[in-house]
Computed example of a mutant assay.
Amino acid sequence: MEIKVFHQLADTLFDEIERDIDTFAEQFDTDIDFESHGNVITITFENNNKIIINTQEPLLQIWMATPQQGYHFENKEGNWICNRSGIPFKQLFSQSVINQIKD
């Protein structure tokens, strides 16, 4: 994959994450702080736990760190997939956000 394509796919994912956070905040009537600086997104919850998502350009990966675990995702046919479990990013991300909201 070319770096330019990687950045386009990562930018699309980061835009989706921002929209998803707004949806979760409304759905669960909670405050979720979203900060984006370059290639890093920091999501802070009311319990002060964080989820950090960033690009790893040399590896062409997206990394997500949650209080419980870290994940590495590779883009396969337009989908970001965890390289350990094979689970899509959206599924692991949603599960991680809900865990923090309910914690």
Rank of each mutant, 00 (worst) to 15 (best):
M1A: 13
M1G: 11
M1N: 07
E2V: 06
K4A: 15
K4S: 15
K4N: 13
V5C: 01
V5I: 07
V5P: 04
V5F: 03
H7Y: 09
H7D: 12
H7E: 10
L9Y: 09
A10M: 08
T12H: 13
T12V: 07
L13N: 02
L13W: 01
D15W: 03
E16L: 13
E16Y: 04
E16A: 05
E16M: 06
R19N: 14
R19S: 12
R19Q: 14
I21H: 06
T23V: 10
E26T: 11
Q27I: 02
F28N: 12
T30G: 03
I32K: 03
F34S: 08
F34L: 07
F34G: 02
F34I: 05
F34E: 07
S36N: 15
G38I: 05
N39H: 13
V40T: 14
V40Y: 11
I41R: 08
T42A: 07
T42G: 02
T42W: 08
I43R: 03
I43K: 06
T44P: 02
T44D: 08
F45P: 01
E46K: 10
N49E: 15
K50M: 13
K50A: 10
I51T: 05
I52N: 14
I52Q: 11
I53Q: 02
I53W: 06
T55W: 03
Q56N: 15
E57Y: 03
E57P: 05
E57S: 13
E57R: 06
E57D: 15
P58N: 10
P58A: 05
P58D: 08
L60G: 02
L60V: 08
M64Q: 09
A65M: 12
T66R: 03
P67T: 09
Q68P: 11
Q68L: 09
G70F: 03
G70P: 03
Y71T: 00
Y71R: 07
H72A: 05
H72T: 01
F73L: 00
E74L: 12
N75D: 04
K76G: 08
E77D: 13
G78A: 00
G78N: 01
G78M: 00
W80P: 00
W80H: 00
I81D: 00
I81Y: 00
C82S: 12
N83M: 07
S85A: 10
G86K: 11
F89T: 00
K90W: 01
K90Q: 12
Q91S: 15
Q91G: 10
Q91I: 13
L92N: 08
S94H: 14
Q95I: 09
Q95R: 12
V97S: 01
I98E: 12
I98K: 10
I98N: 06
N99V: 14
Q100G: 04
I101L: 06
K102E: 15
K102W: 11
K102R: 12
D103V: 03
